[in-house]
Amino acid sequence: MAKVPRSFRLLEELEKGEKGIGDGTCSYGLADGDDILMEKWNGTIIGPGHSVHENRIYSLNIVCDASYPDQPPSITFLTRINLPCVHPTTGKVDPSKLPVLSAWKHNYTLETVLVELRRDMATPTNRKLPQPVEGTNF
């Protein structure tokens, strides 16, 4: 299968993000619309229901460097969250603790990452973790 160049791939993801394809629980887009390298992205995750995250909105920074999509993007939470894969003080997601990042595949997308993060919040071990006060940032 032919490999889609990085820029085409990211343009495709950008359009998908802006058109809101998906279930609406995760959203992402370029942090700066003029960023021609399309490196810095914003993401939001709406906390999964039936968990401590319900009704919370988590904002994240996503950086897709030149190696994306061969290498996973780096993810940092802006909204404070207590989650095993998230560094408690910097908010950075530890790639080794999130399967979608540690076993990255070329066809994974930013949406895949956000959806997986959201799923991680809803796992039986994580969904009841005590959380910091809503609205605080790292």
């Binding site: 992402y28 887009g29 992205w41």
Partner: peptide, 9 residues
């Protein structure tokens, strides 16, 4: 309402 677009609130 909380509106989210392009990864931003």
């Amino acid at each position: 309402q909380r509106l989210i677009f392009s990864g931003r609130v």
